[in-house]
């Protein structure tokens, strides 16, 4: 039976390239690499939105970046879902929106609750498994705009992995530290170059296979 994986994320999932200021080629995005690795029996849905946060409003944005508000609609759009991969929190590092790792963890916890308590259209009796992926830590950058936008983010984001791991244990979710296989580019301190986004897709395969049973 076909399995469905929803990848719910931000620009790291959308595939933003700090080099071209555009989008990575389709085949370079981690979601595409994961899809290729898993094969035809699995559908990987890339649901990435630039600037998406866990639960925080960005009133400067031209559309809703609040991950908690959009998630229920997205879950309905792709129902039935076997696994939800959530990689969010990088934009929570913006001090104007949240600015702390602790805040991102609270946001991630809310997203887990939303998935678990969602009013699924088809009553299969089972909710999707959840895989929490901590985004790679921000790095120092000479890009003044990003350095300012994410002020303090290098230190705060370095705490995300351990805090998300604890949350995953507490909530019975899978956990993967993207920072263990991918590093952010110093071009803007936030995003992944093509090689690093491909590496993330390859690295996620084993755990996703386990959680899907494929």
């Amino acid at each position: 039976m076909m399995k469905t994986v929803l990848c719910y994320g931000d620009s790291l999932t959308w595939g933003y390239s700090a080099e071209t200021l555009g989008r990575h080629a389709f085949e370079d995005r981690w979601t595409s690499v994961l899809q290729a690795a898993l094969g035809d029996g699995v559908t990987v849905i890339a649901e990435g939105l630039n600037g998406r946060t866990t639960v925080y409003d960005d009133h400067t944005a031209d559309c809703d970046r609040n991950g908690a508000r959009i998630l229920p609609t997205t879950l309905h759009s792709h129902d039935p879902i076997d696994l939800v991969i959530i990689m969010l929190g990088a934009n929570d590092m913006k001090p104007v929106l949240c600015g702390t790792a602790f805040g991102a963890v609270q946001g991630m916890e809310r997203l887990v609750e939303i998935v678990r308590k969602h009013a699924w259209s088809f009553d299969t009796g089972e909710t999707p498994e959840i895989l929490i992926v901590s985004p790679p830590a921000l790095c120092e950058t000479a890009n003044a705009a990003f350095a300012s936008m994410f002020s303090g983010g290098v230190e705060q984001s370095s705490m995300l992995a351990s805090l998300y791991a604890d949350l995953a244990d507490e909530k019975g979710c899978g956990f993967f530290d993207a920072g263990s296989v991918a590093k952010t580019t110093p071009l803007d301190g936030v995003h992944l170059d093509a090689e690093n986004t491909r590496a993330l897709g390859r690295a996620l395969e084993p755990m996703v296979r386990m959680m899907l049973g494929v």
């Binding site: 089972e126 498994e129 959840i130 895989l131 244990d169 019975g172 979710c173 899978g174 386990m210 959680m211």
Partner: peptide
């Protein structure tokens, strides 16, 4: 056990 491998259900 699900709790050992980060899943809601046992495997």
């Amino acid at each position: 056990k699900g709790a050992d491998i980060g899943m809601a259900r046992d495997l």
